[in-house]
Design a protein around this nucleic acid. Structure first.
Lengths: 347, 347
DNA sequence: GGTATTTTGAGGTACGCAACTCATTTTGAG
DNA sequence: CTCAAAATGAGTTGCGTACCTCAAAATACC
């Protein structure tokens, strides 16, 4: 009778034996520690590659002892989107605890570059990884690069700083989001012709500017028969947005579409319903909140374009963890999709 | 100077001390082993709860030694959707290896209840968890229940068997998907009136039947001015679907909307373009493949309703793993969304 | 009361790796 | 060839849990 061939998973010891070196040397190679001849490094790495060896993540985690600390740098003040991210992190607490990970929230004024940069500087050295809702500004870029230089893993969240050396961006392509909004407005107004209104928080916000850009791109190239009204800026405030839209509706009885790029959706909706035109005007906005959900079900809001905040929170944690462990990232998994939410596919 | 308060994570030893029992007893409680007085069990559990203690997953994983084995029971034959799931599992191979997990594919005729049930029976005892694309049939239900009874974790994938004792379902709500399709057709045809065509693989397939149900529901309640043509059955084959649609288009010059419930989208698209009516007719189908992607970009297909196969593959693995570890499941994370994909939000 | 049974304690081993020390060997420069 | 520096080997310890054995204590039963 043949002996049973037990294909037990390989261990570092097996790699050491096969490469003809000691465990200590394999360990040095694996962690880029100095004191190994380039020749030997190659030999060990080849053995690892040939056997498709992966260190047992549980053993590695257990052996390193210290827990990993991550920080989420988020805007201060009451921002529903950010509050959702925080809530989803809370839902993960058992998951985090079982892995001995700690995630701390750091609130700061992310809209002031020097304040944000100072906040980031202050975190240096204390954390293994940092997720930050960042403004794209030279000072912030430098602060991020300093963190990376010091060995901290950095992930930008929701808003990217592409010119920095951050390891990863967790968020959507806002130009594509704007294009999606444009295509939906154009398609949903049907054969009618008329005016399209567009309101944003501010053109100075990178994500808003990008959405507007994508929106205009599609409107110009595919729905040029529609008349786009000049952009309004509502500063993401309900009151101001309502005022602006009310006035606009009064002036233009032939508005058939409305795109709200940023927050303040409640104000916009109020203006629409008070004018009694919520059924005639195609209304598209961003993000799924309790309020936009209600508006979708009522029919006031036709489409909500959304990025899943739960997914973003979890993806940021997973990416930071993979980076800290020197594990490959499942890019498909961590990519944030542009969700088109209508009444019937509400999650 | 005050001593530093090191808040090291709790261990089983700490729980044992605080509960006034030995490590062995805590272990017995934690793993539901017999030989502990109910009174003591409660005391230990309370201590665990009071401290929000979570066993260190890495230590637990390392200590148990044996690797976990999972099986994916999938339809045999060339099914692009299933091939995608397989491909995504392949992308996870490093991730799986690092956790010493093995995932094996088992192809079978999932459309024959007795064959499927026999396949499931044959797997009993060999696996820690099984994900299965299951037919909803009494024989299959029994096979699933037997597996659960024997301690195997079972997850239904894409197609559910709600009456069984499976631990979890990874897939979408197909009624909601049909409703979404209906709402989109209704909205996108605009003010026009005319006929709506609908073609499915077979009404006998549970997912198809559910989508049709949802679709008709919305059409009846909200777009009753549209004339729904009798359902065609294309058996998910391109050739047959093309024939059926060609004939239908010839008979009805006033078709303005078309919903393909199942596969065979290529055939349907061919019939549309050969009739030269791909721009006039709103066309909605399911799933994102290389082909539907092309059709979306061309404008032949207006919307693809999709469930992310990568997400489904990963969610199934994660859920099986969490179940095997007796860990809580992050339900938000594992919920599969109904994706509305248009040209501008293609992933 | 004594005996059988149940419950609990004490302790050990193993899992695979990180991180470290110290001794030894090899290499390279002069 | 000599000596210093670099490279490598050999070994230890500890991480927190699972799983096991055996003895001791507590309890139940008659």
């Amino acid at each position: 009778m043949a002996e049973e061939t037990v294909s037990a998973a390989l261990t570092l010891k097996d790699i050491a034996r096969e490469a003809g070196v000691s465990l200590a040397t394999v360990d040095r190679v694996l962690h880029n520690r100095p004191g190994v001849r380039p020749d030997t490094v190659r030999r060990v790495q080849e053995t690892i590659a040939r056997n498709a060896f992966q260190p047992h993540v549980a053993a590695a985690e257990l052996a390193r002892g210290r827990a990993r600390r991550f920080a989420f740098v988020m805007p201060s003040g009451p921002n529903p989107f950010m509050q959702q991210i925080e809530a989803y992190l809370g839902e993960m607490s058992a998951w985090l605890l079982a892995r001995r990970l700690s995630v701390e929230m750091v609130a700061t004024d992310v809209f002031d570059p020097s304040v944000l940069a100072a906040s980031l500087d202050a975190l240096s050295g204390d954390y293994d990884g940092i997720a930050v809702v960042a403004l794209d500004h030279p000072g912030v870029r430098v602060a991020i690069n300093d963190l990376v230089e010091a060995g901290t893993k950095v992930v930008t969240l929701v808003s990217d700083v592409p010119s920095s050396r951050r390891h990863h961006y967790v968020g959507i392509d806002n130009i594509a989001a704007g294009r999606t909004a444009g295509a939906l407005v154009g398609r949903l107004v049907g054969q009618k012709s008329g005016k399209i209104a567009i309101i944003a928080g501010s053109q100075g916000l990178r994500d808003h500017a990008e959405r507007i850009f994508g929106f205009n791109q599609v409107m110009a190239s595919e729905f040029s028969h529609l008349d786009i009204l000049p952009l309004l800026e509502g500063r993401d405030e309900d009151g101001r947005s309502e005022q602006l839209i009310s006035r606009l509706l009064g002036k233009h009885p032939d508005i058939i579409g409305l795109y709200n790029v940023g927050a303040g959706t409640q104000g916009v909706a109020k203006a629409l319903t008070e004018a009694g035109r919520e059924k005639q005007i195609v209304f598209i906005a961003h993000d799924l909140t309790a309020m936009t959900r209600k508006l979708l079900l009522q029919g006031t809001l036709d489409v909500a374009i959304s990025q899943n905040p739960g997914h973003e929170a979890r993806a940021a944690v997973r990416v930071l963890l993979s980076l800290a462990r020197n594990e490959p990232i499942l890019s498909e998994q961590e990519k944030i999709r542009i969700d088109i939410l209508m009444r019937d596919n509400l999650p």
